[in-house]
Design a protein around this nucleic acid. Structure first.
Length: 820
RNA sequence: GCGAAAGUGGCGGAAUUGGCAGACGCGCUGGACUUAGGAUCCAGUGGGGAAACCCGUGGGGGUUCGAGUCCCCCCUUUCGCACCA
């Protein structure tokens, strides 16, 4: 019997697949299926998370190929980004070389796993032919006013020496290196993702049930839409109004003071010429500094009275204007009406500074306890609110907005938490922003025909400042408009720009005249399934959704959602902890493949947990998977003779039992892969199938009918297991004398007739406890079953002397007797 | 604090629509083969009990002939957001 020599088998079939271009996706050829996994950053080597991600995708791709689909399963490299540049600073290696070396190694690793990529469509975002189209999209955005430049407080990571988008700050720290983020005021390029905020929310409806609930919730919270009203408060003694945003206009009669953010541009005008001008401005400067540079989570609420008063447009009351550190400039209007009785923050502040607390809302049922111990934030019935007293909150808000709009001191308004996407990065290894600054003409976009603006080679990586600024040839240029001297923009794009549309480039990766061809894109895209880590829930996935809508508005595609179905895989952990260098618990894919082979590694990683759950890597577990692979191998080896013969399965008694198992397994595995993507249970079903074959092997081989049934079972097993252990399957396929690749041979179908059972064992429960079981006919009437059940010895024993209250028969499932 | 998800043997996990809890695998125990076993094969394996049986899906209550699954309350863990007016 031939040994299971996975090393030579795996190499052999990887070479053959490559040579035959077995998984090449051809445009416009029949019904398509596009399976996409998040492309990797070429950090140098694959980690187990990658192995898991790509194994999951590969099972789907292989399954769909066998189901007769024209499958697009591409791979590429998210190849721009900081680590390449840091390597240049630390080791003097050119970012390009570092990146391409890493890609070469990781490509080899992916091939050693036997993943079915269409290597003809491989892309790398650092290729000027790729990032050219980043620049092209940027110019389109610029033309449409979606890309703009402004000076703004931005998140600055002192370690990465660059700006971060809000989405890239996690708990006040850099998403990449964990360094606490500082704030800097810089002139930056922004994309108007806010213009799409409503549509991004609206689009969730389409994704419900197809994306994990929590990803949708996270995005929804991130966008943070809230409906309310904006109201003007005139300032006493000044021709000025302060505009506030509130979601609780119904509480306006309880507004006892007004608060501005210390960064509010109106502060200066407000205090000009007042005795405390200097003191207040100084105080504000201090607070801004604290806020921008301190790492404290939530500072104590502090405020200062401006000496000015505003008029509540509803009550006509004069209320003091304060400045406080708990009001954010970046949300709403940067000013709020404070209602201490009904807002906990205002309540705390009012208590601290002895400001009046006025109750204007009471619960619909019952009273409110006075004095308040905390703010009553629920909705309810209005009191002390002039003509609005007695109304419920919802109704009051409606009427108050109507009044404000009528009298023109306010209007209905919607606010979003999401900020525009800042894409400028002060680093080298990114897509140059195609803009020049001309002394005469100002900001001038690089004309389309001059793209790409490529990264220069004459740069110095010192670790200080943006390396691009050290390139004379890059920085100095001529103005496309006037031909005079101009300087290039040296900021590069956030790399999330690159990954926002890469899934479209795969559909037409070599296009020189446009980012992609519309026909091709619409044939393939959007991907039917997108698989990746949940860590991109609000980064990549929200940017890509925004881009897709923008690209649709450019009329380059007709759909609005990039990823109609999303599978977020869990992390691969070890001993309950994330694998990390510092914990020393990293499992290297290469070592595992070397020791157990790619087939066993794939099998284990898919078997150990369903995809969306975290997976605990277990050395004993991989041993078990390896053992199973060897057992399967040996089962096939023992029965190769049958597989080589031309035997037909029949319906004789010797054949039928195993044939039923075969067909049930086909059904089960098909459904687990296709409907649920629960590969662990698919593999469990295959193990059970193996156990059944192994147990009955001898008996089956002893009769002609048995041999026919066993042969059918073996081929079914081979097909069913081929997406998981493709190399082994190919090898046996060939040894069985079959032509071509099993990877491209049709998936087996099951015979409904063989799934039916004539006799079914049902459980007999008495008062909810299993007491016996009984074999019933498929269509046996309840009366007949009742009679038989009640005459069973064990049943008689339990019901003796008791009264049968209820007798329930659920056909094919259970008999339930209730006695008293 | 707010939001979401999860909690099942020694472990990873099954149980898809309310119908035999613990499939499958790991580990463990015993046995066979063996000079040897960390290879392979066979048997057993939720807890208690000699057995009949009883108890068991984080805890407590409820609905139901029947609940891991549905409803209410609570606990724990993980994740996300966190002065968002």
């Amino acid at each position: 019997m031939k040994e299971y020599d996975f090393k030579s088998i795996e190499k052999k079939w990887q070479d053959r697949w490559e040579k035959a271009r077995s998984f090449h996706a051809e445009d416009f050829k029949g019904k398509k299926y596009y399976v996409l996994e998040m492309f990797p950053y070429p950090s140098g080597r694959l980690h187990m998370g990658h192995v898991r991600n790509y194994s999951i995708g590969d099972v789907v791709a292989r399954f769909m190929w066998k189901k007769g689909y024209n499958v697009l399963h591409p791979i590429g490299w998210d190849a721009l980004g900081l680590p390449a540049e840091n390597a240049a600073i630390q080791h003097g290696i050119e970012p390009k070389k570092w990146t391409y070396d890493n890609i070469a190694h990781m490509r080899k690793q992916l091939k050693s796993l036997g993943i079915t990529y269409d290597w003809d469509r491989e892309i790398a975002t650092c290729d000027p032919m790729y990032y050219k189209w980043n620049q092209w999209f940027f110019l389109k955005m610029y033309q449409l006013g979606l890309a703009y430049r402004k000076e703004e407080w931005v998140n600055w990571c002192p370690k990465c020496n660059t700006v971060l988008a809000n989405e890239q700050v996690k708990e006040g720290k850099c998403w990449r290196c964990g360094t606490p983020v500082e704030q800097r005021k810089l002139k930056q390029w922004f994309l108007k993702i806010r213009d799409y905020a409503d549509e991004l929310l609206e689009g969730h409806k389409e994704l419900e049930g197809k994306w994990p609930e929590r990803v949708l919730v996270m995005q929804k919270n991130w966008i943070g839409r809230s409906e309310g009203a904006e109201i003007d408060f005139p300032v006493v003694g000044l021709e000025k109004k302060i505009r506030v945003f509130t979601t609780r206009l119904d509480t306006i009669y309880g507004a006892t003071y007004l608060v501005l953010s210390s960064e509010h541009p109106f502060v200066e005008d407000l205090v000009r010429g007042t005795p405390k001008e200097e003191e207040i401005l100084k105080w504000c400067q201090e607070k801004i500094k604290e806020k921008r540079f301190s790492r404290e989570e939530e500072p104590e609420k502090e405020g200062i009275f401006t000496g000015r008063y505003a008029i509540n447009p509803f009550s006509r009351e004069q209320i003091p204007i304060w400045i406080a550190n708990y009001v954010l400039m970046e949300y709403g209007t940067g000013a709020v009406m404070a209602v201490p009785a009904h807002d906990q923050r205002d309540f705390e502040f009012a208590r601290k500074y002895n400001l009046p607390i006025k109750v204007v809302i009471v619960p619909e049922d019952g009273d409110i306890e006075l004095p308040l111990k905390q703010a009553y934030e629920e909705k309810g019935i209005l009191i002390n609110s002039a003509g609005f007293t007695g109304l419920r909150s919802e109704e009051a808000i409606k009427r108050m907005i109507a009044l404000a709009e009528d009298r023109q001191f306010g209007n209905k308004a919607v606010n979003y938490r999401i900020r525009d996407w800042g894409i400028s990065r002060q680093r080298y290894w990114g897509t140059p922003i195609p803009i020049v600054y001309c002394e005469k003409c100002g900001v001038v976009p690089v004309p389309e025909e001059k793209l790409p603006v490529t990264l220069p080679k004459d740069v110095k990586f010192t670790g200080e400042g943006n390396p691009l600024e050290t390139s004379e040839t890059f920085v100095n240029t001529t103005c496309p408009k006037c031909g005079g001297h101009a300087r290039r923009e040296t900021d590069t794009m956030d790399t999330f720009f690159d990954s926002s549309w890469y899934y479209l480039r795969y559909t037409d990766p070599e296009n020189l005249s446009s980012p992609f061809d519309r026909q091709k894109a619409e044939y393939w895209a959007p991907p039917d399934i997108y698989i990746g880590g949940v860590e991109h829930a609000i980064l990549h996935l929200i940017y890509a959704r925004f881009f897709t809508k923008f690209i649709r508005d450019l009329k380059l595609i007709g759909f609005s959602e990039p990823f109609p179905r999303l599978l977020t895989q869990g992390m691969v952990i070890k001993d309950g902890k994330k694998m990390s260098k510092s914990l020393g618990n990293i499992v290297e894919p290469d070592e595992m493949i070397e020791k157990y082979g790619a087939d066993a590694v794939r099998l284990f990683i898919l078997f150990a947990a369903p995809p969306e759950r975290d997976l605990d890597w277990s050395d004993a577990g991989i041993e078990g998977a390896y053992r199973f692979v060897k057992k399967i191998w040996s089962l096939f080896q023992r029965n190769l003779d049958l597989m080589q013969q031309d035997l037909k399965p029949d319906l004789s008694p010797e054949a039928i039992q195993i044939r039923k198992i075969t067909h049930r397994t086909i059904k089960k595995v098909t459904e687990e892969i296709h409907d649920r993507m629960h590969f662990n249970t698919a593999i469990a079903a295959l193990m059970e199938f193996y156990n059944a074959l192994n147990e009955n092997e001898e008996r089956l081989r002893s009769t002609a009918s048995g041999r026919g049934a066993l042969r059918e079972a073996l081929f079914a097993m081979l097909h069913l297991i081929s997406p998981f252990t493709p190399h082994l399957a190919e090898e046996i396929w060939e040894e069985a004398g079959k032509e071509g690749f099993i990877s491209r041979a049709p998936w087996p179908s099951y015979d409904e007739k063989l799934l039916e059972e004539e006799r079914i064992t049902v459980v007999v429960q008495i008062n909810g406890k299993v007491r016996d079981r009984v074999e019933v006919g498929k269509d046996e009437p309840e009366e007949s079953i009742k009679e038989r059940v009640l005459s069973l010895e064990r049943v008689k024993k339990f019901i003796e002397g008791k009264k049968i209250v209820k007798f329930i028969y659920v056909p094919g499932k259970i008999v339930s007797i209730h006695i008293k």
